[in-house]
Nucleic acid binder design. Structure first.
Lengths: 158, 158
DNA sequence: CAAAATTCAATTGCGTGCAAATTAATTTTG
DNA sequence: CAAAATTAATTTGCACGCAATTGAATTTTG
């Protein structure tokens, strides 16, 4: 009883404290990253999720909305208006797939491609701001990937 | 063809990959936590930020809006409407501080206090879903706190 | 003490995120 | 082959999250 079944008893009042919660630590770190990225991305008129879409397209150009959503974990309800703004800003072009009119193919424009080289600068600035080495960053990254996989495994999706 | 910034050469193309970015790992983990919390909080009609406010109030009842904002890292622009919804749902009451009419004191209602004991259940479910021990969770938490501090130190605020 | 500066909460505007409903196109099937 | 089911993207509605503005109360200061 004392070991497994009744672990409610083993959870101290203190566990309710924000500072003791892993989730809050992740939540805060995400906000901190967002704030760190903001001034860097503002120069290009981009938001962080928009930047993520460009990162994905720099790796693999010409993806459908659905494919982009799988890459960065967003659904079409978020992506549709976001992509419309990226198109209005001139970074991407959207075109119905002639082979399957349900799909929309998103591709980089010249302007979007040109931004890629500048993105390295953002990466370096963020690396500095995070204050950890590539090795450290890699470790945390892997730990978080594992945590994310574990959390997502709870409801079907992977 | 010589590069202006020589250190750019040391950053491989691969670094632009989403999977290699610490920030994206944090961003994804935050979303994963949010999705894990959602069904648990839906039963109480709460969102995660609303739950954070209650967690803070369970630790220390009767705080001003500003104080709550410092606890969970949100400004009044986010908190004002959020607290109004928490009040409409009957979990908290808001009252102008008679001693300083600029401030609004937020305190738990009976209903809000009663929820505290159930919150342990949520905590336990999330702990299970995260699939890591208290020790592991503690390590990741500390690493992320440090990362957050480092990122936030870049622009004055602490 | 009165004007100026500061502080606090609320409001406005914009961009996510996500669920649910909608529309159009394709695939399945009876 | 036509009806039904499925799929992809868009749209709608709601709740953050943040910057900037507003308005009221308090503090500073000249």
């Amino acid at each position: 009883m004392a070991n497994k079944a009744a672990h409610i008893d083993t959870i101290p009042e203190e566990a309710l404290s924000l500072g003791k919660q892993l989730c809050f630590a992740v939540y805060s770190a995400a906000h901190a990253f967002n704030r760190a990225y903001k001034p860097l991305l503002d120069r290009f008129g981009l938001t962080y999720p928009q930047y993520l879409v460009l990162l994905a397209l720099w790796q693999q150009d010409e993806m459908t909305v659905k494919r982009i959503g799988e890459e960065i974990g967003l659904d079409s309800g978020t992506l549709s208006p976001l992509l419309k703004r990226l198109e209005a800003a001139g970074f991407v072009a959207r075109q119905r797939d002639p082979g399957d009119e349900r799909q929309v193919i998103v591709r980089l424009t010249e302007k979007g491609r040109d931004l890629k080289s500048e993105a390295f600068g953002i990466l370096i600035d963020i690396g500095k701001a995070s204050g950890c080495s590539l090795e450290e960053a890699g470790e945390i990254r892997e730990t978080l990937h594992q945590l994310t996989r574990q959390l997502n495994s709870g409801h079907g999706a992977d």
